[in-house]
Simulated scan of single mutants.
Amino acid sequence: MPANRNALIRYRAIDNCLTNRYRQWTLDALIEAVSETLYDYEGMDKGISRRTIQADLQMMRSDKLGYNAPIVVIDKKYYAYADPTYSITQIPLTGQDLGRMSEAVEVLKQFKGFSHFEQLSGVVQKLEAHIYSVTTNQRTIIDFDKNDNLKGLSFLDVLYQAIVQKKAVAITYQSFKAQQPNRFWFHVWWLKEFKNRWFAVGVRGNQSDVYHLALDRILAIETADEIEYRHNADMAPDAYYQHVIGVTVSRTLRPCRVLIQVTAEHAPYVETKPLHPSQQLVERGPEGIIIELSVQLNFELEREILSFGDGMTVLAPARLRERIRQKFRTGVARYEPDSGTKSSLEDDKQMEN
């Protein structure tokens, strides 16, 4: 017998708690968290009984729903997953699940060609490919770019719900440069994906600057009902990223005219996959092409240019050309014999000896 909607919400809420290793979860704490989640999703303000949560924990431990969750009790008080990598969201799909997904895919395919559903095309193809692979026990026939080891993806749903329900969240965050994590109030306005990395975009506390928080640097998220949510009044993502590559946006810099020479070898790739929507062809010749971009000068633009190696040459502006030249000079210096870096060939010879 399939679990009802409220039960599934409770299981997911318990799972969100137990995957948060930065807090110890007593039965009372789980009851409180589940009650808050049910109120958020269903508007239920009636408290959840201890017996209900205890029964939910037993159901999650069992194989009735295919969870077999490794839930243990520590010091006769705290609930946790014995396997820190476990989550009910990671369990394989059942035959019944696959059947329902197949039906859903068939319904979604009916809408192909309608402009309102153009953005669903990739989702439908991913579902089709996964269902085909599992049901036929064969290799997938569509391989999408993904990073299975990317951290923080479990926070996507929490952040999404915070946006939909217009709720502030308390985020524990540690940037790459910080020695210790920092906890602060955050108002999420939208979610942004770039190069297989997800960002929560919004404002901190009462500040006005827009922040991009990488999900892989988030350690914990808690809802903050006592904090009034700061609405995004007039900032649309499409307009916000209009003049940049990536997520580094300056509200003071104007877009700059960037001229780049692309070798004949790399020209077809750049023409068929433009670096930015503003890309225009300026000149074509036997040695390649010259393209023009209208973008802000930021870290992602530099990284994109550097990724082409000797296939690109910045012609203008002069300050960007100089930055790229300096980076190439530094890179070349690391390969010089007196740089202190041993080549892989030297390492191989030492290993053979």
Rank of each mutant, 00 (worst) to 15 (best):
R217K: 13
P84W: 02
L219E: 01
V247A: 07
Q326F: 00
I324G: 04
I289G: 05
E118T: 08
R183D: 05
D157M: 14
R12V: 10
K192L: 06
P255Y: 11
Y67C: 01
R303Q: 14
Q242R: 15
L213I: 14
V203F: 05
A233H: 07
G285S: 14
T248A: 12
L153D: 10
G340H: 00
W189A: 09
D238H: 13
G113Y: 09
Y132N: 15
A162Q: 03
S49H: 06
L191D: 05
V105K: 12
F328S: 01
F199S: 02
S154F: 07
F144M: 08
R10G: 15
K192W: 05
K166G: 02
Y11R: 03
I290H: 11
G246T: 01
R230F: 01
F155P: 09
K273T: 14
Q119T: 11
K126D: 03
G331A: 15
F176T: 11
F184W: 01
L156M: 12
M351N: 03
D310A: 15
A69F: 04
D216I: 05
A224C: 08
A333G: 10
E271A: 14
A318V: 10
V282C: 07
D145C: 07
D97G: 09
V188F: 03
L306H: 09
A104P: 00
L153I: 14
D40Q: 11
Y240M: 11
D40E: 12
Y79S: 13
D28L: 10
G331C: 14
K192P: 00
G95D: 11
A170E: 15
E292D: 07
F308K: 06
R5L: 15
I31C: 15
